[in-house]
Write a protein that binds this DNA or RNA. Sequence first.
RNA 1: GAUCUGGUAGCUCAGUCGGUAGAGCAAUACACUUUUAAUGUAUGGGUCCUGGGUUCAAGUCCCAGCCAGAUCACCA
Length: 506
Amino acid sequence: MQNLSEQELVRRDNLQKIIEAGIEPYPSAEFKVNAHAAEIKSNFKPGDTTYQEVFMAGRLMSKRIMGKGSFAELQDASGRIQLYISRDEICPGDDKTLYNDVFKKYMDLGDFIGITGYAFYTQVGECSVHVTSLTLLSKSLKPLPVVKKDDEGNVHDAFNDPEQRYRQRYVDLIVNEHVKDTFIKRTKMYNSMRAYLNERGYLEVETPILQPLYGGAAARPFTTHHNTLDMKLYLRIANELYLKRLIVGGFDGVYEFSKDFRNEGMSRFHNPEFTQIELYVAYKDYEWMMNLVEEMVEKVAMDIHGTTQVQVGENTIDFKRPWKRYTMYEAIQHFTGIDISEMDETQLRATAAQLNVPVDNTMGKGKLIDEIFGEKCEGQLIQPTFITDYPVEMSPLAKKHPSKPGLVERFEAICNGKEIANSFSELNDPIDQRARFESQLELGKRGDEEAMTLDEDFLRALEYGMPPTAGLGIGMDRLAMIMTNQPSIQEVLFFPQMKAEKPEGK
RNA sequence: GAUCUGGUAGCUCAGUCGGUAGAGCAAUACACUUUUAAUGUAUGGGUCCUGGGUUCAAGUCCCAGCCAGAUCACCA
């Protein structure tokens, strides 16, 4: 049995009183709704003859009882609106129980109610609904945090403990208005991208989450086991290799919003499960894909904000095309003044030391370049910027650059100091791909836990022939953080990963 | 994984030098028919994260642990 607080006991007692009064606290009949709070507040003007018979449902979020008349606030999915309730209108006969007892005493903040009434403006000019009948739709047994706003819009007693907000996101969503907003924007972002890609005829697909081999990225996987088949399975770390198989199968363009899983550290930028969109388009290259990314992300910003400019922390980020483009060498030269394009491994190591970039002896040429870039450039790139032409060692699935030895046709889009997109002209030479996998296997043998595995079936698919293809991955959570101005990935995931709560009781 | 910060009423937070546990909101009771962070009066509400230790005495000091956040490490 739970230990109930005083307030919880009061609510259970109220529930009992409601039942004794002959009212069903959890009725099943449909309650037809014909208006929402936000809609009335934005459309109804004093003297209008509209909204004179509204049916509304939602939570009772505040009560201001003044004798025979009361004000209350109803919160539905769209927002809050004030209600005016007068005793003699909701209790037209001699029996005043519904007002005196049920409404005033037994209904608690958080209860779901249904009302009918008409819109009007109070003497102080607040758009309100004058209630003519009142129904209990569902009793609430736990007290909600009470968050209040004053005239200037300052929030008092905000429910702001992150642990409670994330563990009890339902409460967070009820009492913190802006939280709902963030998630609505996140969904708009998905809808915007879907519409963009569908318009171009690309096919949204689904590929396996449980994979016998994990591939397509460098990361440690979650492992599980299938009992009937008695086999080890991995939760995907990416879906790249499956989408490319579909390009081999003859689709021109496929994409998937893919929940991926990586068994690694957590931080405000990392959750063990996260979402990427991956897109593959046949007969295209990474240059073409850069144009697509610019156009699509610009549209996302427009669809969410109505402008290409988005405020993120202290920065105003402008997604208007065209975005800046640097090769990786140019970016390093721009931010450090050093041209590394002709350097060998020894010179790179010396340069890293000179720049105070920590490196170790296991790092090869590609990794050294990547470290210098990561330390000295990435964080400086606030406005959306494409960085192109990465070292081949870091990119085992990308096509080699035809004229720049040691580099691949790859770009990342960086924004607010973080990668938001990664793309390359996909490697479709099966012989080269096998060689790249084999050098990954070597890295694995040397102890790199994130080295890729060799996927024979994927190589078989490539041997049948894959057209030249451009591929793209965008971190949806990272992009959502930027588009909603949130500093932490937990703020854009409904239910971020948490350690288990202590069990109730003893 | 490391470091730092925090965990006290349903929520937000105080709590001095170690000496009876505090406020606002919420709740309860009464009053009040256009208020709006409603108001007025009164009342109730505590496993001070957990477990040890020091002490006549611990929310407070010490040790260990749990949970969370930030930073770092790791990681596209």
